[in-house]
Structure formats: structure tokens, C-alpha cells
């Protein structure tokens, strides 16, 4: 019996490391155990609620004025942004290139962190029922965050940019130099791979996603160059990035949907249902009374 189980296990291990055949199994078991995830996160949910209840008037006012300030600042940026976008579209039109597609996003909340310090994954509270899919790009408020690697019905796992299994095509915003930003397993560091020593990269440069792999949308910030070192005689420079996303702090992230796909339906029916239900309940009993 033990031998049989060991054989099944090794079969599963080999199947999963070479193919994607086991995704449905993982998703099924994941759906079964997903209540555990929500239970495990309750201390933080309750903590958040208690915090909200206990904040006093003064704190709220302070927070409110800070937020108002922020809205002002952001709306100023947005005004500029609208003008710039139009200008950009005009210029792109002149150049004959395709217009950029805006993306739809869905807010998700963190409900778990992979329990090992050396595997950088988080669990979020949106699954296939909200339209999440494997390979989907995930952002936080500051930049690219990671991608979805496994989904079940109510939750999904997100692999962070800085996991050592993760890499994505990027370009330096200032000079347009392309490269690949790979995670090295450190929470706050990425490495730009295979950069020639002559590449035009400086410390402090913003690195954005180039969208070349087709998986991540183009033009979202990935990180800033924190160090660029050239060893004499070496063929490649070693360039380290500091991710702009708060990989270890963000509790809310955004799932990015390609624009062709209709906006997630999961949110809308619930609104319609609450509006329609009273009428239906009133209407339906009447025919049943007439039939006898």
C-alpha cells in the first residue's frame, strides 16, 4: 500500500513538473479547502474591522483631509494625463502605429501568504467565479505585482515578481533598452538578466513592462535600477532593480483583464438581483393562485 501511494505521488510530481494536466485536480482540491483559507485570514479581517470601529473622530478627520489632498494632487495629474494621452494618440496616429488598448481591472484582496519564506506567493480572494485565469497579470497601486499561477473557484495563487521562478520582459523607460527582469527569491530585489556592459542604464532609471511576452500589459512600472555594476573584463553587467510594487505590504491588488473580454459579469448580476427580486417575488405567487 505504501509503495502504491509512493508511486502515485511520484507520478503526480512528474506529471505536474512537465505538463499542465493536473491544473483541474489542484483547482478542485483548492476549492474544497478554500474555506480554510478564509478562516485562517479572519484574525486580520476582524483586526481591520476593530481598527475601523475604534478610530476616533480626530483621526478620521486627519485621514479625510489627507485623502482630499491626495485626490487634488491626483486629479491634477489626471488632467495632464488626459491631455497627454490625446497628444500621444495623435502622435501614434501620425506614426501609423496601433492605439494602446486600455485595460479593465478588478480589485482583489489578499487572503493568505505562502507559509514558506523562500516561496514568494500570495493567495487572493478572487477565483474562476470572478473570471480570474492562469497567467493573468496582477498589479498593485504602485506597479506590476505578479501573475496568477493557479486558480480555484473562489481563490487564486499569485506568483510575485521577485520569486526565483518568475521573469518578465521589460524595457528601460528612459533609453528603451530591453531586457528580462528575473526574480532572485529576495523580496525586494529583481535582477536584469543578460545586460551588455555598454547598455544605456543608470541608477534610478524606471523600468517598465515591455509587453513583448504577450502576458503582461505594456507600460506598467516594474522597478527602479538600484545598482548597476560592471566588472572589468566581464561580458555582462549586473543590474539590480528594486520593485516599485509593495510586494510585501499590499493588501489590495488589481487583476488585469484584456480589453477585448467583456468586463467581469460577477459583479453586475448581484446588483441587478437586488433590484429585481422584490418585483419577481410579488409577481410569481399570483399566477399560482389563479391556476386552481
Amino acid at each position: 500500500m505504501l509503495l502504491a501511494l509512493l508511486m502515485v505521488s511520484s507520478a503526480l510530481l512528474t506529471l505536474e513538473s512537465t505538463t499542465r494536466l493536473l491544473d483541474p485536480l489542484r483547482s478542485f482540491v483548492g476549492t474544497l479547502v478554500s474555506p480554510l483559507r478564509f478562516v485562517a485570514e479572519t484574525p486580520y479581517f476582524i483586526g481591520g474591522e476593530v481598527d475601523e470601529v475604534l478610530t476616533d473622530r480626530e483621526q478620521l478627520q486627519q485621514q479625510n483631509s489627507a485623502l482630499n489632498q491626495r485626490v487634488l494632487e491626483l486629479s491634477q495629474v489626471t488632467q495632464q494625463f488626459l491631455a497627454l494621452r490625446q497628444e500621444n494618440e495623435r502622435l501614434r496616429g501620425l506614426l501609423g502605429s496601433r492605439r494602446r488598448i486600455p485595460h479593465d481591472v478588478l480589485v482583489a484582496e489578499l487572503i493568505g501568504i505562502a507559509p514558506r519564506p523562500n516561496s514568494l506567493q500570495i493567495v487572493i480572494d478572487k477565483g474562476t467565479s470572478a473570471g480570474a485565469y492562469i497567467g493573468q497579470a496582477v498589479l498593485d497601486s504602485q506597479g506590476l505585482f505578479g501573475q496568477v499561477v493557479s486558480v480555484d473557484r473562489f481563490t487564486s495563487h499569485v506568483l510575485l515578481l521577485s520569486d526565483h521562478m518568475h521573469a518578465l520582459p521589460v524595457e528601460v523607460n528612459r533609453s528603451g533598452v530591453r531586457g528580462i527582469a528575473a526574480g532572485i527569491g529576495e523580496r525586494n530585489q529583481l535582477r536584469l538578466e543578460d545586460v551588455p556592459t555598454t547598455a544605456d542604464i543608470r541608477e534610478g532609471d524606471l523600468v517598465v513592462s515591455s509587453g513583448l511576452g504577450g502576458r503582461f500589459p505594456q507600460g506598467y512600472p516594474v522597478g527602479r535600477v538600484s545598482s548597476m555594476q560592471v566588472e572589468p573584463g566581464a561580458a555582462l553587467a549586473s543590474v539590480l532593480l528594486e520593485p516599485t510594487a509593495h510586494l510585501d505590504r499590499s493588501r489590495h491588488v488589481l487583476l488585469v483583464f484584456p480589453a477585448e473580454q467583456p468586463v467581469v459579469e460577477a459583479l453586475e448580476p448581484s446588483v441587478e438581483l437586488t433590484l429585481d427580486e422584490p418585483e419577481e417575488i410579488l409577481l410569481e405567487p399570483q399566477p399560482t393562485e389563479e391556476t386552481p
Partner: peptide, 29 residues
Amino acid sequence: GLIAAWIVGLALDVLVADPLGINGALLAC
């Protein structure tokens, strides 16, 4: 039972994002 231990391991694999089967095999052992 061994099978019960293995199934617990499978659930653990999914929960802690390990490759499927690894915790099952070890718990069965």
C-alpha cells in the same frame, strides 16, 4: 490509515502551494 494520511497530504500540498503528491508521500511514509 495510509490513504487518509496521503489525502491529508494532498490537501496540504494545495494549501501551502507545494507540488502535488509530495506531502502525501512523506506523510504516508
